[in-house]
Structures are given as structure tokens and as C-alpha cells.
Design a protein around this nucleic acid. Sequence first.
DNA 1: AAAAAAC
Length: 511
Amino acid sequence: MSFSDLGLSEKVLAAVAATGYTTPTPIQEQAIPHVLARKDVLGIAQTGTGKTAAFVLPMLTILEKGRARARMPRTLILEPTRELAAQVKENFDRYGAGQKLNVALLIGGVSFGDQDAKLTRGVDVLIATPGRLLDHTERGGLLLTGVELLVIDEADRMLDMGFIPDIERVCKLVPFTRQTLFFTATMPPEIRRITETFLHNPQKVEVSKPATTAVTVTQCQVPAGREAHEKRELLRRLLREAKDLQNAIIFCNRKREVAIVHKSLQKHGFSVGALHGDMDQSARTAALEQFRKGELPLLVASDVAARGLDIPEVSHVFNFDVPHHPDDYVHRVGRTGRAGRTGTAISLVTPLDQKSMVAIEKLIGQSIPRAEGDYAVSADTGEHSDRPRESRGRERSRGGRGKPQRGGRDRERSHEPREPRGEARHASETTPSAEARPAPEARPAREPRPPREARQSSEPRHGARQPANPSHVPSIGRPEPRRQREADSEPGDHSHLPAFLLRPVRSPAGA
DNA sequence: AAAAAAC
């Protein structure tokens, strides 16, 4: 099967060929003919399956005929986050380079006037997040009565984020006769309900990836102290000692924590950016762009970066916080080990996170071994006392997550004196000095990766659930007396860091 | 236990 069998126009085929793709992914193969036949499509597909091109390519073919009128876009694509919307626009720019197409991006955090001017000129493709889109319609600068094709992307995530009422409003503004493409990764009851009202006789296209992590990803958990400064210290150590680290995303559960960890790593000399929803849009875009280009090897992020964002070739994912919902673990870890490449996912696990880890192991159907090292329970033997774990369960239900929760304030722990904000404890908050450490298997990080047996070759795509191979568990240094680690380098001394992880002299301010 | 999205 090749792209030329799907009914796409010559121009689009040429654009696809120019990017080097030759074979459509399953979702593309199934969805594109239906889209071109102007059918409604219900696509059940995770990110990373080629879903975006599955609607972008046929839309480009459809849009070759006809022209846009002022303030009346011909097609509309709804995305849950600004970054995803921007990414879809990049797809139109890439594959639509050969045609005169007006593509507008309506997202928050950027100039309203520029967007309005663009709408006035007439757009073929409007890509939007719900808030800004409705803002434009309410001000009268935008008419949705000319929309021939509506795409609702990442619908289940929109549900999680409380966007469904907005989506329903938008659906009342577009013509009843439009074509609708609806994509979701899961089918909770609320999503099933809205597909029945939004879609007319939809063609169902399902390419559900298993609720599991890629077999090429080496996963491990590192026991961590429950205090945040202990975790930051452990993170620095893990970063220094990580094997084959090219670039990494460090996930935190809270935006505040993202900011703190980012600042802390910067202070300790790491070249690191940050990404979360409270940053202003230019900082978000800049951080993502620098990370993509490789200018920043490290990115501290909230779950805004967990799903959908196209960040190629991440070698490591760190869960600074264990996610509370197992699905989020799968999405985070899915940032590495893509397209059959190897990757490493390391989770810092406090005693409070044990329950979450059990739920994660149950969902992915494998136990996640503990890393060896002085934080491990059984460091000497390398045996993992708690495996194999019973791990057959596989329910994908996200029951109870349907309603957005608002107003949850962070609770401060009060039984102990607070650590001063922003890392004022360097003298006692420690990491091992370079000399004290046994310079373990820390290769220079740019060195090519050692060959790994091609484990993925004969694996079934679905439900690969063999336990992780203990021989691939990264060793986190050798056990050493806790005392020794008290003598950390000063925050200013970065001589022990791999050069590419170092902050450049004229460092771009992060968040 | 959170994050995300409009001004």
C-alpha cells in the first residue's frame, strides 16, 4: 500500500514524497479514502500513529478546489492545546507548500489583531483552541457558517480539560451539513454520547495502540525521599550518571514544581528549558523550539508536553513526580523510544507513590524494575524483590475523570519546617562530588549508543508484556555511604557536567 | 493529588 493508492491529488502526493514518506500508517490508510469520499469519520487513535496527516493530507486535496471568502473559513480544526494547534499548522505548511492556501492559527496568548486581519483576508484552514475561537466569533469577526469540514482532534483530552461545552457551542455555529472528522484515543461514555450528536453515519476507523509502553524503552524506578529537595538532588545525580543521554524531558505534576525544578537545574549549571501552561506563549514557543533544535538538551515540563507534541528523538524521560493517573505515565514515556528507537524512562518514586506505581505496572502489564544503587532496597544482588508482579489487568477505563476539577490549591505540608523557596539549601543539599563518585558507566553523552539486540523485530504490536529485562536496568552509581554525598560541588562549579549539558554563557532566560 | 484553555 502506498500513498498513491488512497486517492490523494498529485500535488499532495508530491509534497508527501518530498518529505520522504512512502508508506501510509494504518490510520492514514483507513481514514484518507473516507475523508476524500466526504464521509464523517470517527477515528480512534493515539498520538504518534500518524493521525494528523490522516486528516491534513485529504483536506489539502479537497481544498484545491474553491476559494475562501472573507471571515468565512472553509474548514475548522479544533485542538486542545496551543502547541498542538501550532503543530497542525506546521503540517499544513509542510504538505501544502505547493498550493496557495491561507491557514490561520487562532490560539490564546498571542495578538488578537493579527489573527483578525488574517480572518478578514479569508482563510481556507482555521486551526484553533476553543477559547480564542469563541472569542473571535463573539466579537463578530468570524463566521462559521461557511465551514464545510470540521475536525475535532483529541476529543477525550478536550473532555478531560472541560472543553466539551465549548465544542458543543462551536458545533451549533457550523452548518449541519458539514463533514465532521472526530478523533479520540479512548471512548468514555461522554465521548460516545457526543459522537452520536456530532457525527452522521460515521465511518469508524480504529488503530488503538496498546495501553503499554514501547518495548524499546528501558524503564526503571528509583526510590526517592519524599522531600522535594531530596528529589532534586537525586535528579541531578541521575542526569549526570545517565548513560547515552542525548536529551531528556523531566515531567513534574505541578506547574509550580516545573518552575522550581527548572530554576534549580539552571542554578546547578544545566542547560535546561521549561514548559508549562502558566508561562507566556512566547516563552513556551521558545522553549519548545530550542528543545526541538537541540539547543537545550533538557526540558522540564508539565503534562502539557506529555501528549501529542512532536518532539523527535528524546533519549530519556524522567518522571520527577510519578503521575497520578497511569494513562499519563504511558503518554509521558511515549515521548521516548519512538519509531523503534531505544529510550530510557526513569521515575523517582517516593513512598507515597507506591500505589500509583502499582496502578501503572498493572496498566502497562509489566513490572518496572528498581534501579540498582544506594537508593535501592536490595542493591547488592541486583535482585528485585517485588517482581515479577501480578500484572495481567488491562482496563483502559478512565472512570471518574470526566469532570474537570478546579480550584485545587496545593496543600503545604506543615509538620516540618519548610525548605526555603527556590533552593537556598545548597550547602547541605548535596550530591556526590565528581571525585568521590566511582565514575561509573558514565560514557560521554554524545558517544554513539552501544548496539542493543533488536528486540522489537518480532514483537507483536499489541500487548507486548514481557517483564523488562533486568540487564537493561540502568545502574545508578554504586552504593556509597550516604555521608559522602554531603559534600556536593557548589552550584557554581559545573566542571563535572558533560559539556553539552552545561548552560551556555549567554543563557536564554527560561521561564 | 493536576494540567490545560479567553480577555
